[in-house]
Amino acid sequence: MRAAHTPLTRASEVPYETLCQFLYQEARLLDQRKFGQWNDLFAEGGMYWIPLEEDQEDPLNHLSLAYEDSMMRQVRINRLNHDRAWSQKPRSRTSHTVSAIVVEAVCEVSNQLIVGSAFTMAEWRSFGLRTFAGLYTHTLRVTDGRLQIVEKRVDLIDSSEAFEPIEVFI
């Protein structure tokens, strides 16, 4: 098996363990509030998407809980780090669990993979502890010898439910 640090070239040859490591690392960066490093995992033009509906196909012609490019992600990060983000006193603490990681598709032409997984995220805020659960679908691209996120899709199992504000990335 290739070591995790070996530069990657082809999507079809990315070891499963490397994919798992990537997803775990991504979640860990969020739990450690290393939001800037997390945002750097995205490819140029990469999107973070939380659909509002089950099986929602279109992020543009329908409402989404979030559909954020690097600009909107960075603005969210700037806010989370701002002293006067009133609702972040105390700040959110999270714990992600990512499991059931499955390679769903590989595209040689675009050098991309689609990786599915299940997750739960516990979040503690001023109003207490709450849980998010759902499925991730990561579209990953091999570029410059490493994996980059083209799209992180977060399908919450209760996406059309009423929510209290969602502030951190899921």
Partner: peptide, 23 residues
């Protein structure tokens, strides 16, 4: 689409604007 963009930013449960109001 612009209407949705406006709503995603201002009215979504994940709005970075509304959250301080609700707080």
């Amino acid at each position: 689409q612009r209407t949705f963009t406006y709503s995603n930013v201002v009215n979504s449960p994940s709005s970075i604007v509304m959250t301080d109001d609700v707080h």
